[in-house]
Each structure stands twice: as C-alpha cells, then as structure tokens.
Design a protein around this nucleic acid. Structure first.
Length: 972
RNA sequence: GGGCUCGUAGCUCAGCGGUAGAGCGGGCUGUUUAUAACAGUCAGGUCGCGGGUUCGAAUCCCGCCGGGCCUACCA
C-alpha cells in the first residue's frame, strides 16, 4: 500500500489538508513519521490464539521439520507430566523453558525435534477411578480388572487432551499430533521388554523387604507417595528377660525397651544398643501406686535415660547396681516376652549393636522387628535374624503370631483407623507381667499421600533391581561423570543419591500399570528366562496392550516348551518410575525423527531423585550408559514473598488466568527474566514488571517497523559507506550475537534476555533512535545518512526478531509478518543471522564509550537549563563543550550537536571556564549551554540561522527546504 | 535430624577478594514529530544477622535466622 522511496515526501502527494485552511504550512505532513499497522496495543489474549490457529493451519511445525532435514539433531526429551488435572504454574515454567531451549537450538541451526509425552499409569489415576466407584456405591474389588484398567485409560486420555491444549496455548511447539504416552501399546510392550532385559541379565530378583504399606489401598507405597502427619500412638515399655550374659548380674534382670508400635512386638527378634553409650542395671527399691514394676526387679537401661524411665515406670527409688559401656553387652541374650505362651516364641532375642540407636527417647535399648522397619531390617540382614510375616495385606495378624488372642486382630481398620491389635498385644504383655508402662505419644508418622491414612511397615515379597549385580551402581556413577549438568550442582546431587541408594524396588500390587510380565518356576523358585517367552509377551502387548497379561491363559506366553502347571505368573505391576525411566527406549530409540541418547533432559530439581535417576539406572542397566548427554534443572515456583503456593494461603498463580488476562507471552517473559536455577517467584507485582518489559520490546519492534515502511533494497548502503554511529550499532550487533550464542549454549536465557532488553532500552531507544530521529523524519529519502539509518534498522529488525523469537514467539512472528506480509514464511523458519566478523570493532566501541560519556555531561547541563525554564526541548539549546584532548580525539569527525540532539554545538579543547556544568565522576568535560542561534525550523524544529534562506520556504531550514522540494508544499 | 541450595536497591538480576552495579519501577521535568508512546534527571542498598581469616570481604571460613528442594527418623 505505501509508496516506494521517492526523492520527495510522500505526504506531499496525499493532500490530506486542503490549501488555504491555515496561514501556517503543514510541515508535519512532509516529514516521514513512523508508519505501521503493527499496533501498539498488544491484545495478546486475543491475538495469541489467532496466531496459534494460523500456525496449526499452515502446519508450521511440519514445515520446520522438513526444512531442517539433514541438520544435526538436538533432542530435548520431554519428561512426561502426569495426566490427571489442569496445568499449574510449575508445568508452565517447565514447558516454556523447554520450548525456549528447543526453539533457540532450532534457530542456532539444529534440527530440534520436540515430542511431548505423558505419564499415564499409577496410583493417583487409579484412586480417582476408585473414588468414582465409592461415590456410586460400587465395590472396587468387585470390578473386573480389565474394566477397571479401561476406565483408567479413558481418564488419562481425557487429561492428555486437556493438558495438550493448555501447553499449546503457552506457545509450546512440538509434535502435538503424535505425542508419546506410557500407556500406548508399543510403550507397554517396550516396558515389558526392558523388564525382561533385567530378568535375563540377572539384575531382577524377588526379595523380602519391609515396605511402607497402606492397608487402605492394600499396596506398598513408593517413598514419593508417603507424607508425614501427626498421629497419636500407644507407647509401651516392655521387659525382656535376660537369659544369658557374661555378667551374672544381668541374668534374670530385664532389658527394657520402648516402642510406639505395640503390634510389632510379635515380630521382635532382637534388641539394639549403642556401643558408645553407658548402660546401667537399676535395682528397684520402691514404686509408686499404679506402677507395673515390683520392688526388687532389676532393669537394664541407658544411664542417661534412667531418670525418664524411672518416672515413666513410676519407680520411686532405684539403685544402680551395675554399669558398663554398651559394647560390653555383646553376647547378651534375652527371651521374647511372649515365650511360654506359644512355641513360636521359643527363639532367643540377642542384644546387638546398631548405629541408629539414640538417647533422645525411650530406654537406649531398641526393640528390633526386622519385618517392620528399614533399620531393623538392616540389623536383621547383618546378624541373620529371621524375617517373620506377622500381618497380611489388610494389616491383620496371621496365624504365625501364635496366640488366639492375637490372631485376626487388626493393626488398622479398612478405613485407616487404629485397630485392635495394639490393645491385644498390650493386654497379653500385661497378663504375662512384661508390660512395664503404657502411654500415648503424638508424633509425626508416615501416612498415605492419597488416602491420608497411617501406614505400617510390613514384610512383603517385592521385585528388585540389584544395584550391584552387573555393577549397576558403578556404571551409573560413571555415567554421571560423563554427563553435563546445568547448573553444575546437579552432578553432586545425583551422584550422592546413586551412591547410597538401596536396590530398586520396582513392584507394586496395583492394577493400573504395566505388568511385571515374568514367570517363576514353582519347583525352583527361579525366574523363567526364555527369550522366546519374553518375545511372545512383548508381541502380545504390542497388539493388545498389557491387558492381555491378565486376560490370557499363561500358556499363550509360555508356549509349547513350558508346562503352565509348573509356573507362577507374576501379577504385580511395575512402579511408574520404571516406566518413566524407560521412555528413552520407546521414544528416543523407536522414533526415526529422534536420536538416542537425548541431547537434554530438563526438569525441576526434584527429578534428581525421580526421573533423572530412574532413567539413568534403567539405561545403565540395559545399555551401559545414560540416556542423556546433559541434564538441566530448574527451581520451584514460589509466591511474591518467596513462600510456597497453596490454595489455603490464596497465593496461587494459575497459568490459565495469566494467559487469559495478560497473554502467554507474559509468562514466557517471566520465565526468561528469572534465574530458573534457583527458585522463581511470581505474583501480581512481578507480572506487572513483565508487562512493562514486554511493552518496551514491543514498542522497539514497532518503531523499527514504522521507520522501515517501504524500505527497499535500493536504499541499502554497504558497510564501507556507513557513518561511524551506524558502524557502532553493527558492532553492538556483533557483540550481542556473541552474547546470544553463548547464552544459548549455557542455557542462560536470563543473560540473553537482559542483554537484549538493555540494548533496546539503552542503546536503541534512548540513544540511537533518538539521535537518528531527525535524519529519519526530516532528511530527504535519498540522503545517504537516512539510507544508512534505514539499512541499520533493517539489520536490527532482522536480528531482534530472530533473537527474540524463541522467547516471544507470538510477538516476533507478528512483527515479522507485519513487515514481510501475511504470505511470508514464518520467523520460526529462520536461523539466527550470520553476523560478519568485520562488524566487530572494539576500537570504535571504546571511542563511542567516550562519546556517550561526553553526551551525558551535555544532557546533564541541559536538564539544569530545563529546570530553570530556559529551555524545554534540547533543540532550543546550543552548547559549548570544553574537553580534554582524549574527548576531542574521540569526537573527531562527529557532529556534537547531532549526537546531543541540540541545534548547535562547539567543541573546544581545554579547560572549562568557571561556572561550566560538570559531572563529578567525569573530569575533563565542562559544558556551557546557551540558547541556539537562529529561529526554529517549522519542519525539523531545530533552531538554525539558515531558516528562511530558501525562497518560498520562509519557515524552514535549508536542509528541510531541500527535502520538501521547490514546489510541492508551496502548491498546497 | 541430615544433605544440597538461596538470601545484593520496591521488582528482576549482574558482581564472587580491592572504593556497591544494570534494567525496570518510583519522584520530578521535558516533549506532543514512537503520544495509553518517547526523552532527560533525581532518589533508593550498613550486599539476611553475628563472628573469624585478610592490609582489605557482598565476595573466603564458622555460627545463627529465614526461604526452598531432597532425604531420614521419630524405635
């Protein structure tokens, strides 16, 4: 629509104003004001969805993929979010950061393919479905497993759809048409294959282990599924008769233990002591009313706890009759308090040293039940203690606790309330005279994160991946050394976890997941490792999904070589971390558009323990190396005060609300304006800040567009013909190009964004644009100076739209299309411009540093003039600047008036006269301002002596008269 | 309880042994030819607190306080 460059003002041809309306000529219409359709008002909530629709319609991602064929691949492998609800701000941070990384790598010249994924299996979804059943009055256990799994699948599918839309709304680009999920049949098949690899290589084994167990959900819980809440427990002191010791004094005395879980007494197999602690034997002389202790009893306790114990046991007077270090207790043996009640208690209860014993509470002698605690278990392993099963999956005492008064009692009820087992145990203890005291304790206790019910430690059969078989731990530690961590502290964090972690428990007694599809030989107890069987299983999963494990006869998988009667089909499912840890195998390896290992895994810092570790172990166990080349972590999102967000505190920022109200671009800016390595803050004030930053960038682009209207190639000026100021801008672009590339390499988008924003605000808006406004608006279009500026603006536009595109993906595109037309290829199909090395000119930069320092003194002097009402616009002033030789040298060949935007200027070498304006921190420059000589040009507003010197143009200066031309304006 | 980590102007961040920095925001002013835009200018910090090392510490060490992530245990 606009006219091309013409030697004379386009406004002249428009005749917007008729002649004769005014005595003053309309010079405004003869200058070249910015002209653009790119609106100042962003209206992001409206424009962004339209842009997304446009990209979708043109299949932008597909276009980028096909135009990037053959370039080196960059694969950011998506850590799958859990498909069970709307996105929160943490999701937004994570996906936006991924998008910025992926887009910036793409524009760096890579083929950056991003395939989003979802984590679909697991307890939270299962629980949602069960909740529906409960609401409908249905019994979850009565529902066939395949029907249950189908509902879980549909639930996950629904939320995948919702989250996909929400992620895309944020501007996240990727293969949304073909995402991966952990519940697709091919994924389920590959997960089964991965498990079979561990079976074949010997890493997978079935072991017994006490695990935190929920009797409500009837499952072992992963650590991540446990939370701690206050809980009131029954506490008891119990006497264990000592039957053997190298100290005669001890035989016949009682070792006293304290526990908060009376129901674990039947599982007791040892008593732990601290080798360094002092223990003493108390001879009880007198007791208070209600004490369960008889005078004359002798009790073994830790010395430093004896007062507390005496008080708890209501002992009035007792005398220490023996005292030794704990280490001396080695070899001491007690009997179980229930001995004599049933023959199952005829075993010895040894006193054993253990590091976990403390003197903070209790008696300094710790009840040790290997099936009911991790540390107890470890003591048990170390000393070969029995590992009895005392409760079933409902938390009910089994037959092997021996006594009718105990068998069938419940630790917890089906809905998670305290059951009758504690009471029954206490009652028996009391009957046999071994109860020393009883009380209540309110303490922090593990609970299920979902049902909120208390958990118990229960001995169970579980499947493990050994950290030592095949040297898995060593391999993983080595792989960590070969991985790049951003920030670097991630390496230590992962390393220390892998170094100290126990074997990986991968089994769950649940329904919604991938089966641990293996058989155990009933005759030998060994895993069946027949590749033909594993292949049949995987093939079936590939076609029908994991469901077929539950719906088919074992013979289908066992084939002709194995008799189903001889094999137990394992019905456990694999924990979801194993699935997530296997994504590399069914996404990176299987898809031709990706590569293995991934270039980058990028998640919140909590995933050191979660996904990073699971993926590392899974890949090291099956492929001897990490599935990633680099790991990047970000912090957590907090509110404006640095506090955790919570619904009850009302400080939650929902990404959907920000997007609807301010636009996704604002969230994207927030991500890059923050230091994601640390925790990030967000709130109304911080969002306002981002909006301000956005405005500046948008207006910079808008100003470029306005002043580039109808720019044509003929106008372009070669570098050699550029004035110094223009060459300085090119130098800055070369500098920024380095900053941008380095920042992208470092994943330091804050540095990138800060540099770009400061450049736009300080170098362009406050300086270059301001100085060059006169030339842009008033010079004739064919003037070399103006052509130089427009050439630079074109270059700036090219660079800024590219550099901003990975972050401001909407606005960069909007500006790009505004310039090049709706039919132009997308800005996102571009690469970062190649900046000629010759643009870099450090000597010029040093020179202009001085020039701008000198300019600061001038603007300071003018501000004083303005304050004293001697001038308004700087163009009303002319200055005489006295400066030392170095400044004079820096100004050689430059027009001081032009640079300082005054109407006149004189530069004098030498000291400033008294009264000249100076700046404290800038010795050597003094400024004497004065009113400019001449009259104001009505066109360019400079005050010049040659105003009116051209006939027919009495109101304007010579330059403007030339620009306007001899006749046009006069004709109007 | 342990490990890791953070605490610099109202906000977002640089600085990481040598006299406290930037951008934004704020106040004031100008411009009205980027105009719900732009420019100039000014004011803001005892670098969480307390010790120590050093000629010198925001920067190194120790302790504390406060935030965050992970983890353990509470027998």
């Amino acid at each position: 629509m606009p006219c091309g460059p013409r030697p004379f003002g386009r406004a002249a041809s428009r005749g917007r104003y008729g002649s004769g309306l005014s005595m003053t000529k309309d010079y405004k219409s003869t200058i070249f004001l910015p002209k653009t359709d790119f609106p100042m008002k962003a209206e992001l909530p409206k424009r962004e969805p339209a842009m997304l629709a446009r990209w979708k319609q043109q299949d932008l991602n597909g276009q980028i993929r096909s135009s990037s064929k053959g370039r080196p691949k960059f694969v950011l492998h998506d850590g799958p979010p859990y498909a069970n609800g709307n996105l929160h701000i943490g999701h937004a941070l994570n996906k936006i950061l991924k998008d910025v990384v992926s887009r910036s790598q793409q524009m760096l010249g890579k083929d950056s393919v991003y395939v989003p994924g979802w984590d679909c299996h697991g307890l939270p979804i299962e629980w949602k479905i069960e909740e529906r059943y409960r609401a409908a009055g249905k019994d979850k256990d009565a529902v066939p497993i395949l029907e249950f799994r189908r509902e879980c699948r549909e639930f996950a599918q629904h939320w995948i759809g919702v989250q996909s839309e929400e992620f895309q709304r944020l501007g996240v680009m990727g293969d949304w048409a073909n995402p991966y999920t952990t519940m697709s049949f091919d994924a389920e098949a590959q997960i089964a294959r991965e498990i079979s690899k561990f079976a074949v290589n010997g890493g997978l084994y079935r072991g017994a282990r006490p695990v935190l167990w929920s009797v409500v959900e009837k499952t072992a819980l992963a650590d991540a599924e446990v939370e701690y809440h206050d809980h009131v427990s029954t506490t008891i002191f119990v006497r264990f008769p000592i039957i053997k010791s190298k100290f005669d004094d001890l035989v016949g005395a009682s070792a006293v233990i304290w526990t908060t879980t009376p129901w674990t007494i039947p599982g007791n197999r040892a008593i732990a002591y601290g080798e360094e602690f002092d223990y003493q034997l108390l001879d009880v002389r007198s007791v208070a009313e209600g004490s369960l202790i008889e005078p004359g009893a002798r009790l073994l306790v830790a010395q430093s706890l004896s007062e507390e114990v005496k008080s708890a046991l209501k002992i009035e007077q007792a005398v220490s009759v023996w005292s030794r270090k704990g280490a001396e207790l080695a070899g001491t043996v007690a009997s179980h308090p229930f001995r004599g009640q049933d023959k199952v208690y005829d075993f010895d209860v040894p006193l054993l040293p253990a590091a976990h014993v403390t003197l903070e509470a209790g008696t300094g002698l710790v009840h040790t039940a290997p099936g009911h605690g991790v540390e107890d278990f470890e003591v048990g392993i170390a000393y070969g203690l029995a590992l009895p099963d005392t409760v079933d999956e409902d938390g009910i005492f089994l037959k092997n606790v021996g006594m009718d008064s105990l068998i069938g009692r419940r630790v917890l009820t089906a809905d998670g309330k305290v059951g009758d087992a504690d009471r029954a145990v206490v009652s028996v203890l009391k009957d046999v005279g071994k109860l020393a005291a009883q009380g209540k304790l309110n303490h922090s206790y593990p609970h299920s994160w979902r049902s909120k019910a208390p958990l118990i430690f229960r001995n169970t059969a579980q499947w493990f991946i050994s950290m030592e078989t095949n040297g898995l731990r060593a391999k993983a530690l080595k792989a960590i050394e070969g991985t790049r961590f951003v920030p670097a502290t991630g390496r230590n964090r992962l390393h220390s976890m892998v170094e100290s972690r126990p074997d990986w428990c991968i089994s769950r007694q649940r329904a919604w997941g991938v089966p641990i599809a293996v058989f155990v030989d009933r005759r030998t107890g060994k895993l069946l490792c027949d590749q033909a069987v594993f292949d049949r299983i995987a093939e079936a999963f590939e076609k029908e999904g994991g469901d077929c494990w539950f719906s088919s006869e074992p013979a289908r998988f066992l084939g002709p070589d194995h008799d189903p009667a001889n094999f137990e089909q394992v019905k456990d499912i694999v924990e979801v971390w194993f699935e997530a840890g296997s994504t590399h195998s069914f996404v990176l390896e299987k898809r031709a558009d990706l590569k293995w290992p991934a270039s980058l895994y990028l998640e919140g810092s909590d995933q050191h323990r979660g996904w990073f570790q699971a993926a590392l172990l899974e890949a090291c166990g099956t492929r001897d190396r990490a599935p990633f080349e680099a790991v990047l972590t970000h912090g957590f999102v907090l509110d404006e005060q640095g506090r955790k967000m919570s619904k009850s505190d009302g400080n939650v920022v929902a990404p959907q609300e920000v997007t609807d109200k301010n636009g996704a671009e604002i969230l994207r800016l927030w991500v890059v304006a923050s230091d994601y390595g640390d925790d990030l803050r967000i709130g109304p004030g911080i969002l306002k800040h981002q909006i301000d930053l956005y405005r500046r960038l948008r207006n910079t682009l808008r100003y470029l567009l306005g002043n580039l209207a109808s720019f044509s190639e003929e106008e372009r000026l070669p570098y050699a013909e550029m004035p110094e100021l223009e060459r300085w801008i090119l130098h800055r672009l070369a500098e920024l190009d380095g900053v941008v590339r380095q920042a992208i390499h470092d994943f330091d988008f804050n540095a990138l964004f800060t540099a770009l924003h400061t450049f736009c605000a300080v170098d362009l808006s406050a300086f270059y644009f301001d100085v060059r406004k006169d030339s842009l608006y008033c010079d004739r279009p064919d003037a070399l100076a103006r052509r130089a500026v427009r050439t630079i603006l074109d270059q700036l536009f090219s660079c800024l739209t590219a550099w901003l595109a990975p972050v401001m993906c909407f606005t960069a595109e909007e500006a790009w299309l505004s310039r090049h037309g709706e039919q132009a290829p997308s800005v996102h199909l571009r690469q970062f411009p190649e900046i000629p090395a010759a643009w870099r000119d450090d000597a010029l930069a040093a020179k202009w540093k001085k020039v701008r320092a000198l300019r600061r003194v001038v603007t300071g002097a003018l501000e004083l003039e303005r304050e004293n009402k001697r001038i308004g616009s700087s163009l009303q002033a002319a200055t005489t600047v006295y400066a030392t030789d170095d400044y004079v040298e820096a100004m050689r060949g430059l027009d001081l008036a032009e640079i300082a935007i005054t109407s006149g200027a004189t530069l004098v070498a030498g000291a400033a006269p008294a009264g000249a304006f100076t700046l404290e921190d800038l010795a050597g420059v003094g400024v004497v301002p004065a009113p400019a000589d001449g009259s104001k040009c009505q066109r360019c507003w400079r005050v010049l002596p040659d105003v009116g010197s051209v006939a027919g143009h009495e109101d304007i200066c010579g330059r403007c008269a030339d620009a306007v031309g001899p006749s046009q304006v006069a004709a109007e």
